[in-house]
């Protein structure tokens, strides 16, 4: 792990992996979309609107995966003061927020024909909404300081504290929901467990495509972060040089 603390070495590896990730993302996405939109059966109850699932479910998984990744990177940054972990955590946040947002929007578009409403205070929906707010808080805190290093450290502590709290929030939201509306969406849970193989293939392909997309964008964002850190250092050096000359 500490081998990759050197940005130059990280960049070398990242640049080598990047073209493969781009190719894999596009191939998997194309295949997944083909199966999802054309070559999978419509649901016997939901008709063609079940196809929303192929983007909705992977983005929900990615929303949770990205928060976990962010918390792990943040913990690494706090424990070992690993400079790249900091950077990767900060690069992960907008991607995770994006996936969570896609999940919420596609979910509400799916909810309208299925449940007759764009939004229901279901436990799953509510916990995704809270996750989205946690991402927003993390990004706001990371950008709230004049000194970017300060913001990064504060945000890292927040990410870890939030991660400890997430199971409690999830559990309390489930409890809250079951108090008010028991088992009106048990269909939702059951469908996940016994899903038809013809639907599982596009779902798996889309999930893999989202995963490779995440790593692709992560490398892009990490490269940009490293570049902007370099620019900051050069600017500082210039300012100091100009100040010394006076």
């Amino acid at each position: 792990m500490h081998r990759f603390a050197n940005p130059a070495r990280f960049l070398r590896i990242a640049n080598a992996v990047y073209p493969w990730l781009v190719a894999a993302t596009f191939l998997l996405m194309a295949a997944g979309l083909w199966f999802a939109l054309f070559d999978s059966p419509p649901d016997y109850q939901q008709g063609d609107s079940v196809r929303i699932m192929y983007i909705h479910v992977p983005s929900a998984w990615m929303g949770m995966f990205c928060y976990t990744a962010m918390a792990v990177f943040s913990a690494m940054a706090l424990i070992w003061k690993h400079p790249l972990a900091d950077l990767l955590a900060r690069a992960t946040a907008p991607i995770g927020a994006g996936f969570t947002f896609v999940c919420l929007v596609s979910g509400s578009l799916w909810g309208k024909p299925m449940w007759g409403a764009y939004w229901v205070w279901d436990a799953r929906l509510t916990s995704m909404l809270i996750l989205f707010f946690l991402y927003l808080g993390y990004m706001a805190l990371a950008n709230a300081f004049d000194d970017p290093i300060r913001g990064q450290k504060a945000a890292a502590i927040l990410a870890v504290a939030g991660f400890v709290n997430i199971p409690i929030i999830k559990f309390s939201v489930d409890w809250w929901h079951t108090l008010h509306q028991p088992s009106s969406f048990s269909l939702f849970a059951a469908k996940h467990s016994d899903i038809a193989p013809s639907m599982l293939l596009p779902l798996g392909l889309m999930a893999l495509a989202c995963q490779t997309y995440y790593f692709m964008v992560l490398i892009l964002r990490a490269r940009a972060e490293i570049a902007s850190a370099k620019i900051r250092t050069i600017r500082m050096a210039q300012v100091h040089a100009a100040g010394g000359g006076e």
Partner: peptide, 10 residues
């Protein structure tokens, strides 16, 4: 408030 309110939901 933005940071803490989501954590106080439980």
């Amino acid at each position: 408030s933005l940071l803490i309110l989501p954590l106080t939901i439980p």
